[in-house]
Structure formats: C-alpha cells, structure tokens
Amino acid sequence: MGDIERQRQPKPFVVVKPQLTALNELKENSMNENSTTEHTLIVGGRTLALDKHGYLLDLAEWEPGVAEHFAQLENIQLSDAHWEVIRFVREFYQEFNTSPAVRMLVKAMAAKFGPEKGNSKYLFMLFPEGPAKQATRLAGLPKPAKCL
C-alpha cells in the first residue's frame, strides 16, 4: 500500500448509473479531469510516475499494490471479480496494444467469459464510475480514448 503526494480527494461513491450512451459516457469521462500537476505514487517503497490524468505512466512498473492503491482512491472494495477484470484488461493491452474503451471491454469480456460477465451492467456494478476508465487505471494502463 502506498501514498499519493498532492492527491485529489476521493470521489463520492456513485451507485446510480444511467443506461450507457455515447454522450453519457462522454459526460462521465470529462467530469473528473485532473489538474496538470505532476503526480507520483509510492507503492512498496518505489516511487512511480503518474500521467496528468492520474494513470500510471509506465505500465511495466505495475504491481498488484498499484491496483490496491487506486482502488482505495476510487472507493472500490476489491473482490475476485475485480481482479479478474484487472487481469483481463492487462492481457487485453498486451495482445492489442490499446487500452479498451467501454464498448470494446464489454465485447472482449463477452468473447472470453460469456454474456453474464460481458455486459455493461455487470461491469458498472464492479466499477460504478466507468468500467473502462477505472479498470484500466487500476491495471496500470493508459487512460482509454474518450470517444469510443
């Protein structure tokens, strides 16, 4: 577990998620833009650089402690289901070199785990503020494109 210097306040927990549309997703994504101040993260005694959105700058630096730290920041109680998605998006990045946006994540999850897990309701239950946005952050990937 680590500590963030000059971190932003944890966001209030949001449960209600309206149906996902392109515009909802857009609004949701633009809500929590971080300042351009440079952040760092200290996990397991190592100082890791973050990008201006608060995502890990170098995904090779990732370790499970990073996910645990971001989970705390984002008010997420990590369960096995969360870890499954985190591991999945990391594998996805290694295979396709791209950080999955929501639709992409839903499609890919459906292809691998079937429709029970490959749907946005399930993913929003785990990551209420945006599964792609939050899962990729916890997994140490770059922030996914907003517009997809």
Binding site: E95, F96, N97, T98, M104, K107, A108, A111
Partner: peptide, 14 residues
C-alpha cells in the same frame, strides 16, 4: 513508433 498494428487483432473481435 507505437506498434499500433497489434490493434488490427481487434478486427476479429469486431
């Protein structure tokens, strides 16, 4: 250059 060609693998998924 970023090896974005790996993303062509997504074509099958889509």
């Amino acid at each position: 250059l970023k090896a974005f060609q790996k993303s062509f693998g997504l074509f099958a998924l889509y």
